[in-house]
Amino acid sequence: MSIASVFDIALVALILAIGASTILVRTAFAAVVMFAVYGLLLSIAWVRLHAVDVALTEAAIGGGMTGLLLLGAVARSRSDDVDRVRVGYPVRLAAGGLCALVVAGLAIVVLHPPAAVPTLAPVVMENLPPSGLGNPVAGVLFVFRALDTLLEKVVVLLALLGVWSLAPDRAWGGTPGLQVYAKPDPPLIFLAQLLPPVGIVFGIYMCWVGAKDPGGAFQGGTVLAAMWLLVIVAGLQKAPAISRLWLRGLLIAGPMLFLAIGLAGWVFADAFLAYPEGYAKPLIVAVEATLTLSIAVALAMLAAGPPERAQQQ
């Protein structure tokens, strides 16, 4: 057995143990902390699966942003003092049986791959050069399956509107409740002054490099969102009121440009969401750059939650 496989087995064992503990530990707080650790371990697993793009996304969104959201929710719900009602033993037994069945079924499928494993990797690599992109994953996201990516941006916008819709009527158009928890703390302010310049450069770099190496709009956007949230939490800047025109404009700029270029493809190339020959790369980079901004704003606002106080004029 090679060192790599020993490492893999240890990693899987750790992931499973931490994963199970997020379900089994008694307090919600501990579960959330476990989950953040779990997200990090999972991104290592993605590196081991040679999917660095996914690893970055998992670390940034799956672990980081989701962890942040959950942590905020735990801090507010004070659910530690809630004496948990557990479901009855028979239900747990039945659920355990059902889950074991599902796991067994999936394990059988995993252990019996088809005789000839189908793959689209050669087709992707064959068709990638005209787009000028070097990163095949970016190629799939923005060229071959661009429709999915476009729709997914709309999904994020809808989720944000869904979150906003949970505001009380009087607070509509106001500011999210995030800075309520901001206690100006000298070390935090120090960090919020020092880190964002570095983070912004890094976020833009992530987006830029996504065309040829792992990275891209989502990973870059997440970093930018994190920087913005840091500044807000440290009390250096207020969260914007959700009725601001610039905020709404930034939110839709990315999807709008994507859609516009897609529609232009109808005229200048031969189909919707096709890119005219020779212009593919600059167009995709433009879309990615705008999307990075839109995603950063959307993610930050999703994390900031629904508006809680009416806008002060």
């Binding site: 703390d185 070390p187 120090f190 960090l191 880190l195 570095v198």
Partner: peptide, 16 residues
């Protein structure tokens, strides 16, 4: 350096 920075700040925050 980034880990150093975040480590130092977070430790301060937790201690605070």
């Amino acid at each position: 350096l980034l880990v150093q920075l975040s480590g130092a700040v977070v430790t301060q925050l937790v201690a605070g």
